[in-house]
Nucleic acid binder design. Structure first.
Lengths: 223, 223
DNA sequence: CTAATATTCCAAAGAATCATAGAACAGGGG
DNA sequence: CCCCTGTTCTATGATTCTTTGGAATATTAG
């Protein structure tokens, strides 16, 4: 048992680290970063058993990383505040910069194309008004309505194949989805390229867009 | 066993969190933030058994948070780079903002006076040229020589009682020591007040001074 | 080469966490 | 009021991490 005078302080500090030490909890935080969810939604969306989801949420709440509100029979969880999202981003950047294994896991998950040719959030922000660019939100329409990159068209991945004719063949297409490690936009990009479009994914998805200060627009699908 | 598609990614991310999940390792990182140290120095300064110190350092190195170099029969460890120090600061701020228990542990450790009446690094930076202020570095002289706040006088705590006459009675004194949770400056402040001086500690010590962009000066004791 | 010192490797006991099964609880609809 | 649904609480084996003793390694001094 280590015992130095400042031990109680560092023990408390370590609570934050410990809370961020579980893949399951980090995953839940990333989903919650998309917006408020019920326990059941979280369990399904993150593909984690319900019991386990609830148990981990208790820990996140104990560390004040999330808050919950009860509405009727359901409990909605959300990130405690803006700073949690920001800190999460810092952790991800810090880890990516440091762990080659992480970068490798990411590129294996997303595919080389997505990683190497992704548009950064800054780059996209600078070209928002460029008429030669078309931004496609490939998430479910409900997510799009809740908040999207200004000017983005909602074309859920499932509908993309049937709506290819809505996209101008001569424009550069930027596709994005939700979380930082979401593969949906990569799949969309591959599909688009197969049909002759010039397409690239948005690096880090909407999560990073938001974290780097990108504006959001809510409301009905633009177009 | 939780298994979702992104699991490998989050498992890697969690490695950083896990590494920061131990009071012992956090303590070692804070000492290393003061500068390069050998295993033995770390063990002594952090008051952690040597074997354990070595074992934890291996983990920190595996996570690329520290690097080591061998000189003769000793091994010197240091933080891997500037960003580790910065991230550590962010973690501490984030945790302090979130965990009441942490704030409580800190104020209990440092004493109410130190916490409530501390001078912030920004405040001190703004008043560096104020002639009505005297900055006292109460760390060992060797530490002072390695780097100190510009204009600071080196008066190790052990010598402070005998050198009170070197300090102007009408000035405001700011005392500081090393790490963010170092109590030495608080003790100095209490001693000074007992002798009629107006004294306040520097919040977060030299560590926070450095992290918030404060300049350092090296070399022989100023005076 | 041998001895002495600093550090790390290896292994095992002890402590802390994780995942999950079963019971319990709280709102809302009937 | 009672039942149904969503969620949390309690308990437990499995797993992983921490700590530490003993052996091993590496470097310098002599």
């Amino acid at each position: 048992m280590a015992e130095f005078p400042e031990e109680p302080i560092y023990r408390q500090l370590a609570r934050i680290g410990r809370t961020l030490a579980s893949p399951v909890r980090l995953r839940l935080l990333d989903v919650l970063d998309q917006g408020e969810r019920t326990v059941e939604q979280l369990s399904e969306e993150a593909d984690i058993p319900l019991k386990n989801t609830s148990a981990q949420l208790q820990q996140l709440r104990a560390a004040h990383l999330v808050t919950s509100r009860k509405a009727g029979t359901r409990v909605y969880y959300r990130l405690a505040d803006e700073r949690v999202s920001r800190f999460l981003g810092e952790l991800q950047d810090f880890a990516a910069e440091r762990l080659a294994d992480l970068r490798e896991a990411v590129s294996e998950h997303l595919g080389e194309v997505a990683v190497l040719e992704a548009v950064t959030a800054d780059e996209l922000a600078a070209r928002l008004d460029d008429p030669g660019i078309v931004i496609v939100d490939v998430r479910p329409a409900a997510d799009h309505a809740r908040g999207h990159v200004p000017g983005a068209v909602s074309v859920p991945l499932a509908e993309l194949r049937d709506r290819l004719d809505e996209l101008p063949g001569d424009a550069e297409i930027v596709a994005y989805c939700g979380g930082p490690y979401c593969v949906v936009s990569s799949e969309a990009v591959l599909l688009l390229r197969d049909h002759g479009f010039r397409a690239r994914p948005l690096d880090g998805g909407l999560t990073r867009w938001r974290r780097t200060g990108g504006r959001l627009r809510t409301g009905a699908a633009a177009r």
